[in-house]
Simulated assay, not measured.
Amino acid sequence: MKKYLYSVCLVGVIVYSCKTQQTTTTTTETSTITANLTKEEMLKKGEDLFNLRCGRCHDLPKPSDFTVEDWKPIMASMAPKAKLNAEETNWVLAYVNANAKK
Rank of each mutant, 00 (worst) to 15 (best):
Lys72Cys: 04
Glu87His: 13
Pro61Tyr: 09
Leu43Trp: 03
Ala100Trp: 05
Thr27Val: 14
Glu29Thr: 14
Ala82Gly: 00
Gly55Cys: 08
Leu52Met: 08
Cys57Leu: 01
Ser7Thr: 15
Ser64Val: 13
Thr34Leu: 09
Val11Glu: 09
His58Ser: 01
Val11Trp: 13
Leu93Trp: 06
Pro80Ala: 00
Thr27Ile: 14
Met1Gly: 15
Lys81Asp: 00
Thr20Val: 12
Glu41Pro: 06
Asp59Thr: 14
Leu37Trp: 11
Thr32His: 09
Ile33Tyr: 09
Gly12Arg: 06
Glu69Ile: 13
Cys9Gly: 13
Met1Thr: 13
Asp48Val: 10
Lys62Ser: 11
Pro73Met: 00
Ala76Asp: 03
Ala94Asn: 09
Trp71Asp: 03
Ala100Glu: 07
Ala100Thr: 09
Met75Gly: 04
Thr30Ile: 14
Thr32Val: 12
Leu60Asp: 04
Ser64Tyr: 08
Cys18Leu: 15
Asn97Gln: 12
Val15Thr: 12
Ala94Lys: 10
Val13Tyr: 11
Thr32Cys: 08
Ala82His: 00
Lys44Val: 05
Leu52Asn: 07
Ala76Ser: 03
Glu87Leu: 15
Asn51Ser: 06
Leu5Tyr: 14
Lys83Pro: 04
Gln21Ile: 15
Ser77Glu: 00
Phe50Asp: 00
Leu10Gly: 10
Cys9Thr: 14
Ser77Tyr: 05
Ile74Gly: 02
Ala79Thr: 08
Glu87Ser: 13
Glu88Gly: 08
Thr34Pro: 00
Tyr6Glu: 14
Leu37Gln: 11
Gln21Gly: 13
Thr32Gln: 11
Glu47Ala: 04
Leu84Glu: 03
Phe66Ser: 03
Lys62Met: 12
Asn51Ala: 08
Glu47Lys: 07
Glu47Arg: 06
Glu41Trp: 09
Arg56Tyr: 09
Ala76His: 01
Leu37Gly: 06
Asn36Tyr: 10
Glu41Lys: 10
Arg53Val: 07
Lys3Ser: 14
Val68Cys: 03
Ile14Arg: 08
Val92Ile: 05
Leu43Ile: 13
Lys39Glu: 09
Thr34Asp: 04
Thr32Leu: 12
Val15Asp: 06
Thr23Val: 12
Asp70Pro: 02
Thr30Tyr: 06
Thr26Cys: 05
Cys9Arg: 13
Phe50Gln: 02
Ser64Cys: 06
Asn85Tyr: 00
Asn90Trp: 06
Lys2Val: 15
Asn85Trp: 04
Thr25Gly: 10
Asn90Leu: 13
Asp65Trp: 09
Thr24Phe: 10
Gly46Ser: 05
Ala35Ser: 15
Pro61Gly: 02
Met1His: 13
Phe66Asp: 02
Val15Trp: 10
Leu10Met: 12
Asp59Trp: 05
Lys83Gly: 00
Tyr95Met: 07
Ala82Asn: 00
Pro80Asp: 00
Leu49Gln: 03
Cys57Asp: 02
Val13Arg: 08
Lys44Asp: 02
Ser77His: 01
Lys39Cys: 08
Cys54Arg: 05
Met75Ser: 01
Met75Thr: 05
Tyr95Arg: 09
Glu41Arg: 07
Leu93His: 05
Tyr16Ile: 14
Gly55Tyr: 07
Pro61Asp: 03
Leu5Glu: 12
Ala86Glu: 10
Tyr95Lys: 05
Thr67Trp: 07
Glu29Ser: 11
